[in-house]
Nucleic acid binder design. Sequence first.
DNA 1: CCATTTGTGCTAACCGGTTGACATACGCGT
DNA 2: ACGCGTATGTCAACCGGTTAGCACAAATGG
Lengths: 325, 325
Amino acid sequence: MPTIKDVAERAGVSVTTVSRVLNNRGYISEATRKKVYKAMEELDYQPNEVARSLFRKKSNIIGLIVPTVAHPFFGQLTSYLETYAYSRGYKVLICNSQLDASKEQEYIWMLRRNQVDGIIMASHTLDVEEYKKLNLPVVAFDRSISRRIPYVTSDNYQGGRLAAELLLKRGCTKIAHMCGSLELDMLANQRHRAFMDVAEENKIPYFTVETDINVFEVSKYEELLTDLLVQHPDIDGLFLNSDIMAMAAMKVCSKLGKRVPHDMKIIGYDDVSIASLVSPQITTIRQPIAKMSELSVKLIEDLVNENSVSVENCLPVELIERGTT
Amino acid sequence: MPTIKDVAERAGVSVTTVSRVLNNRGYISEATRKKVYKAMEELDYQPNEVARSLFRKKSNIIGLIVPTVAHPFFGQLTSYLETYAYSRGYKVLICNSQLDASKEQEYIWMLRRNQVDGIIMASHTLDVEEYKKLNLPVVAFDRSISRRIPYVTSDNYQGGRLAAELLLKRGCTKIAHMCGSLELDMLANQRHRAFMDVAEENKIPYFTVETDINVFEVSKYEELLTDLLVQHPDIDGLFLNSDIMAMAAMKVCSKLGKRVPHDMKIIGYDDVSIASLVSPQITTIRQPIAKMSELSVKLIEDLVNENSVSVENCLPVELIERGTT
DNA sequence: CCATTTGTGCTAACCGGTTGACATACGCGT
DNA sequence: ACGCGTATGTCAACCGGTTAGCACAAATGG
């Protein structure tokens, strides 16, 4: 790898001059500028960003911690995040925590050691205190950690309401909601709050199925749903916390001989791209993933530049009614 | 951020000693080791990896270029890759090329500037020559670039054969294969070669549907498939180059009133997790994504350590027969 | 008691850039 | 001829580590 010194020698100028060209500072004549560019090209020179990062104390790297990028929601999120980040001059280091607390902690340390400019946390398994200790720009995704750490979310309560209300509107008389562990105080839990509120307001019986803490396994979803529907065959409406869960529900219904939407209405969450690819297409609550991603990157940028940021960043959701209701 | 100097002062030792503790070299007494660790802990010190990278000329970062991590196949691939990489002490910088040649080129430059130790290329839009110029450890995913650049793939020809043979075995009389652009010389094109071979050997009429170069859009798949099936209503077997395409095919069939698998047999590719989540579950050719990921990381590691590597790395595929055939 | 081994410190160089201070030189306008 | 803006160079310090070389002291052991 050629260094700035090689370029300087080849161009017949000093290192300082090359650096000035590289950084556009001070006086440089067109002639030398060209000489330098020519030398750089001939040597196929690219400045060593590690050296620059060291000096500038800024790596232009954002750390992104997700449960797993294999989950469609986080896959899409990651894709958008990376695209926006790159367009703003940031690179993205990905970390799949697998929703494992010790891994998450390790990743956080690793990101610190690597001097990332900020961390976008979309996996939340640690104690709130651990995140607070991080004296580093952090943006939380879908979780309110403290009054100091900004978060990006979408209107979970509204999402829960929209879903529950649609189930009732479509004539359901006994409904259930499957969600992740309600123990972690994630903002997504508001969906359940809203679901219960609507059911109670309308005096409709309802059930709650919580997955184990930290579980992302489809087979587990199927198992829980089968149990539920076998025990309560009169349930006629399901609200699921993700489109993947909704697909699992459709599969279980198909196995149990329940027709969707005739015998069972199903509503998913996220509006991930496959939601509209299955038949019947999944009715779902759309999260504005692209906008949430963009906002997250902007917040990191603002934190880095020490601009003031708003802590609460809640974007609207949208009911997308399709074939399962 | 505390530096090694702060640690040294706090522990009452020299910077050299701290460095020796950090790197486990030279003689260190238990007593000082403890003092140093204590100081590190009290200061919440973590060594600056940027500085280390600069000195060592090794960043322990692998660049990963995929078309988009939002595609389930690449999402799963990325997830596995990251996990293996991390377990071997590497971090992963992700790049979504969107199958755009200029973006891919930019990403490659960016990765070089950032001194990544190697690049795993799973997006291939550039001229072979561009990849050859990179004097950097590169592992290609599913493409043979040159005799010098190792690649990881699975047995595409066998995959194509298994699929085509199963369609025939299930009684199909007129079959079609939908694949990406055959212009790019990707190894995945062998699936089509095999498909044609089987059809010709058995004297069965067949069709080919190529997506545009670089297209990853589901709506485009649906459009192409609808056209095909409307023009040739007697087609009774489809082989698709991904499970996503297979889902699109199922959707189109459902729209056209064709029952799967009764009127139409469908075989996908990859065996991504959603393949077994839709009803009917998709018959597919499983690529060993986990193993391919592991192998890719190992190859990068070997290249970095200048061990000899085998250029051709082809893993077996497996037919997973489910409900669509 | 002397030779090693062990433990620690100091100094300086290095990784590949960036930057400020200062010197020098040329061309130009007045 | 003077002053100024432009153009470039030299030098040294710095970012936060690592490392080799050398010195020195204490502990160990034969």
